[in-house]
Design a binder for these strands. Structure first.
Length: 114
RNA sequence: AUGGCAGGACGAUCUGUCGCGGCUAAUCUCCGCUUUUUGCGGUGAUGGUGCUGAGGAAAGUCCGCACAGGACAGGGCACCCGUCUGUGGAAAGCACAGUGGGGAGUAAUCUUCAAAAUGCGUAACAGAGAAUAACCGCCGGAGUUUUUCUUUUUUUUCUCCGGUAAGGGUGAAAACGCGGGGUAAGAGCCCACGACGCUUUGCGGCGACGUAAAGCGGGUACGCAUCCGGGCCUGCAAGACCAAAUAUACCGGCAGCUGAGGGCUGCCCGCCUGAUGCCGGGGGGUAGGUUGCGAAGAUAAAUGACAGAUUCAAAAACAGAAAGCGGCUUACGGCCCUGCCAUUAUU
RNA sequence: GGCUCCAUAGCUCAAUUGAAUAGAGCAUUUGACUACGGAUCAAAAGGUUACAGGUUUGAGUCCUGUUGGAGUCA
């Protein structure tokens, strides 16, 4: 599986995201919380949403930085997933953590989902 | 050399391995037209073929513009904003250059205010008085009283009338300053010098204004109105287009009080109810999509991760485009250039 | 993203058109009353008027800028 993350592997649309919020199963590990739906009917590949709450970080620069780190961590490790899933990642730590910590937490999350 | 002031430029670069948004050569799929191929147009997919991809403030949303919709015959009132001068500018609570007061600094320099005339209002507390000022005081006159044997003069007490802004504990602010003359006492009442304001003239300046002379004048500060200039309202979540599902104006067809349809039911019978039901078209319009949209440009939103090198040293500070443009304001590590000022030292 | 608005005592609110000790209720503390508590009565404390500048003799009020918060438009 290539280590790419094209646009088609991102979950888009307000209705789809709302459905994931209401019906997804919850997990958390370290600085990350997530909700996911395993094996949705419509998709061949996994699709993800990344969210960093504005109430944790007021400045857009920090939110963008964390979203990029989370996406990078997912991109490097998405072969850990055995079946396609729709996943929502939410950052929950009150300070900006370095890439290595996010990478480790992402590993734990993906292993729990499988 | 140290410290400071002003102005300007910058806001890392390079290499390697992965990765992201947009456009695109090319290839493939499907559809339509022409149809022998071919060609043209469109949809979608791949796309390391190439190009391009965050800031000086992208921020705050404080001004202004353009654009869009709404309102609007014309004019006025009301309301809001602005206010020294010139130039630039589409305009601006804009920029640049200047004028005149006040303030800060040894200085370089910085900062703040500002039009004209008329009318009206306010000036708490304190204070005699805060704006056509007589409470005390000073002066004059009349009366009264006291001193005296009596009269006159002088002195004292009180009352009344008048003059007077020189003095008086206040206050943010007290009716030009100071000297002389003058006077019953006083006063720009008069004079000299000085400060201020207005007018006229000369000179300089496009102008605000400066300067010189002459004449005139004498109550301060702030606010409001008139006056002059400008302003319709709302904002890209504006607005335009396409358009599921559901309900449905309207139109057509079919069935229908000789019972359609509905309720009880898994189905039939039966019972109850009693006028619309079904199909098609169709307009507005919701979800959603397209556009508005740019020499970055999406629609949950793109610039990142890791390793290394460089400038003395860790690329570190403030910070991420969501419609565009011109300004302002606020935040900010560091570096470079130019000019100037103060202090110290040397020649 | 655009637009509109708010901030005063621990809480809820006043303070006219700038005028001097910023006020009221509840809450708090102390005292009285009571055998004790509640209620009541009396008194006290509590404020850099969100922050920083400016105008003014004088600012909670007027002007500018920051900070925090709320509402609204699909």
């Amino acid at each position: 599986m290539p280590e790419t993350l094209p646009k088609s592997e991102r979950l888009r649309g307000q209705t789809a995201v709302s459905a994931l919020f209401e019906h997804g199963k919850g997990l958390s590990s370290g600085c990350l919380r997530c909700k996911y739906i395993a094996s949705p009917a419509h998709a061949d590949a996994s699709r993800i949403v990344v969210s960093v709450p504005k109430r944790l970080f007021k400045r857009a620069v920090k939110r963008n930085l964390l979203k990029r780190r989370i996406r990078e961590a997912y991109r490097r490790q998405k072969e850990l997933l055995s079946a396609p899933c729709d996943i929502l990642f939410v950052y929950s730590a009150p300070e900006v953590l370095p890439y290595e910590v996010i990478y480790a937490d992402m590993t734990a999350i993906l292993q729990k989902i499988c």
